[in-house]
Design a protein around this nucleic acid. Structure first.
Length: 420
RNA sequence: GCGGAGAUAGCCCAGCCUGGUAAGGCGAUAGACUGCUAAUCUAUUGUCCGCAAGGACUCGGGGGUUCAAAUCCCCCUCUCCGCGCCA
């Protein structure tokens, strides 16, 4: 959520952000119109309430006919205040609604572009190995080794769900533990939050109202299955105020995440795009002056995961048109999957600046006697499991159909070095 | 799920029965004073509107009654205690 004062005072900057992001400018114009009407009404209501408060004190000291007359006089006033308050609350609702739909302002370093074509590759790490046989795709490997079962997944839950079995399940568990241990060493505090979140939490990080259709809803209890650990972990501190010295706070969390993938493409064979997936996440709460430095180190921490697994990857700086609406700047880490010769997004590292903090009211006090201010939040996958699994299976496959286990994971698999 | 008790400012706590517009304390910060980073005194310490002066709002959340609600009525959330159920 943007600061209403910034929208009023720096209207053209906000307008440019909308244009760069390919959002309709009408969002801004709607807000400005509603906002100014809202402010007029608030001022008018405040004046009436001032009179009411003054007369109320007077009434307390009166008696008899004098008192009766004043009270009769104020009855009319009460009606006017009531109807004005009703108008204010409906204007405020519309005002908040357009605020919640307005995207964050991109950082200056973010390239302007329409879609993924406009993204900039800032780094390519390792060429990957060369194959002297035809590399298989991960779903072939998974089924041949009987470690991924799509048929059973569909039976139990439906299309888009899968089952890991045997060494596949053990590899998943090894990855989770490996990633958590690595982030722990990097100074992140481990969190295991609720899988389900309420409306407030989903609104706080920006999933509601815009991405309603992407989440699984538990209607009976007013809850949602989290689409990313970012939601429960960031909301740990909703409505909280930190002292300056508490920052920065670095959290890591393993959590299953759920996405309906409403507009799911048909060419998604395998586990690269599924309804339930595991993810190890990093979330940071930082001082506003530090957030862009923290973004670089967050990216570095995410990269260290795929580097330790020795997987070929590249880093993209997302352009304005491809970035999610709550980010001010975002890097994606894409893993190369040689089976299908594809790049798979395995991590997204974003600086949300004060966008989420304002929605979720997460503040810090710059000095003990100063007013609290919104801090900055960041989030990065460190990293998404299924796509890492795809990259491992395809990059580490052998001609005989077996898969070598990356060295970094062997301690987590009782020293085992190969699946198959 | 049932019964009881509770939620007041950064923190603690009074006010609620009997409606009149949040008392007091702690902490923090600034100033005064003092030989002193101690004690004491004073001020500041939530949100919104406003360039400001100023004003409005704020007692877990939402409704209602009333000229006026922390206070009375209704609904909801969370916490604690007891009971029930349960991996």
């Amino acid at each position: 959520m943007l600061d209403a004062n910034v929208i009023r005072q720096e209207t053209e900057r906000v307008r440019k952000a909308l244009v760069d992001r390919r959002y309709p400018e009408s969002i801004l114009d709607d807000f400005l119109a509603t906002d100014s009407r809202w402010r007029e009404c608030v001022e008018q209501a405040n004046r009436l309430k001032q009179v009411r408060n003054n007369v109320s004190v007077e009434i307390a000291s009166l008696s008899g006919d004098e008192k009766k007359a004043k009270i009769a006089e104020m009855k009319d006033m009460a009606e006017r205040v009531k109807s004005l308050d009703a108008e204010i609350s409906s204007l405020d609702f519309r005002r908040q609604e357009s605020l919640l739909l307005m995207p964050n302002i991109p950082h200056n370093s973010v390239p302007v572009g329409d879609d993924a074509e406009g993204n900039i590759t800032v780094k390519t790490w390792s060429k990957g190995r060369s194959f002297d046989f035809r590399p298989k795709e991960h779903f072939e490997i998974g089924e041949d080794l009987d470690i991924i079962d799509f048929v059973r997944g569909a039976k139990v839950a439906g299309s888009g769900f899968y089952v890991l079995k045997g060494d596949g399940a053990r590899l998943e568990r090894a990855l989770i533990n490996f990633m958590l241990d690595l982030h722990h060493q990097q100074g992140y505090r481990e969190i295991f939050p609720p899988v389900l979140v309420n409306d407030e939490s989903a609104t706080g990080t920006g999933q509601l109202p815009k991405m309603k259709d992407d989440m699984y809803q538990v209607e009976r209890d007013g809850l949602w299955l989290n689409p990313t650990a970012e939601v429960p972990v960031t909301n740990l501190h909703r409505d909280e105020i930190f002292e300056k010295d508490d920052l920065p706070i670095h959290y890591t969390a393993y959590l299953p995440s759920f996405r309906r993938e409403a507009g799911r493409h048909s060419d998604t064979r395998g586990i690269a795009r599924v309804h339930q997936f595991n993810k190890v996440e990093m979330v940071k709460f930082v001082h506003p002056d530090r957030s862009y430095d923290e973004l670089e180190s967050l990216l570095g921490d995410a990269e260290s995961v795929v580097q330790a697994l020795d997987l070929p990857y590249r880093v993209l700086l997302l352009c304005t048109g491809d970035m999610s609406f709550h980010a001010a700047k975002c890097y994606d880490i894409e893993l190369h999957a040689p089976g299908g010769d594809r790049w798979l997004e395995a991590s997204s590292c974003s600086n949300f600046t004060d966008f989420q903090a304002r929605r979720a009211r997460i503040k810090y006090r710059p000095e003990p006697h100063l007013k609290s201010e919104f801090l900055h939040t960041l989030n990065g996958s460190g990293v998404a499991l299924p796509r890492t699994m795809v990259a491992i299976l395809e990059n580490y496959q052998n001609e005989d159909g077996s898969v070598t286990i990356p060295e970094a994971l062997r301690p987590y698999m009782n020293g085992q070095s190969v699946i198959g």
